[in-house]
Amino acid sequence: MTSLTDRYVAATVRSLPETQRADVERELRGSIEDHVDARREAGMTAETAERDVLTELGDPAGLAARYSERPLYLIGPTNFLFYRRSLIALLAIIVPISAVGSALVQAFMGEAVGAVIASAVVTALSAAMHIGFWVTLVFAVLDWTGASKSGPLVRWSLDMLPEAPERRAHRGDTIASLVLLTLVLVFLAFQQFFPIAWNLDGPVREPVLDPALWSFWLPYLIATVIAEMVFTLVKHRAGGSTWPLAVVNVVIAFAAAVPVAVLALAGALYNPAFLAAFDWMQADGVGRVLAVGTAAVALGVASWDAIDGVVRAARAPRSARRRPLAR
């Protein structure tokens, strides 16, 4: 027998249990010879016939899987849905927490903004890769060992039904957003002219935010807030979040939050005269905590807003995604 058949048979039986190997090898070899003989009788050359037969039998690894009844997939349908849910839940919880945690540690240690962002991104990526790898491995082992044959790990029940898309809450969301954004605008203007804090000597008559920011950044922030208000109204008219709207939402959220965070970390956000009115502000490290805390809150709120928009777009019924709600 030529080497092609030898190689094919060897490749097939290699992964089979020791006890079956010799028997399968003997039978498979005989069968291949039968097929080859039949083709030669039909007029083929020995070489063409052999190539033909082996090609038709296909990938030896696939044949071996059929012999040993091993699945040809990593995670089968039995546990796939549970796998997907676990993966999404773990990614959604652990990745942001670890990214924020690592960024906070870097920021408290006094690293530059770039280093803080880089550390958050690297931590998020490595957390995501670890979660993806280990969760997939666990589920793949379940399938590979045949543990999945006894049924899904978690049986689906009616309790797992997600809430229907909240259409009625939609109007309330819009109003709440507009009220909140209006309050932000009012605060930005109010803090410049009126006291919003008191110390032992009475009201502090200094703006909270650095007045130097009025040259560009405060008008810019006011513009982003107005953009967000317009966006909220557009979203309301569209009948909920859509993918393009979710993208716009992400852009607006970070357009506002990133400058605030950078200014805070650079120590340029708060009015030094305002901070000077409080003795405890002068203590070691308080300024740092304030800067990092402000940056973390700004980015956290923006991330929350961005993710919320994306999740709503993903959950929106298809019909609502394509056209606005009929009134």
């Binding site: 498979l28 069968s31 097929h35 038709e56 039998l57 296909g58 059929r66 009844e69």
Partner: peptide, 8 residues
């Protein structure tokens, strides 16, 4: 039936 189905 394909050979690679029948034999296994």
């Amino acid at each position: 039936v394909d050979a690679n189905t029948l034999y296994p």
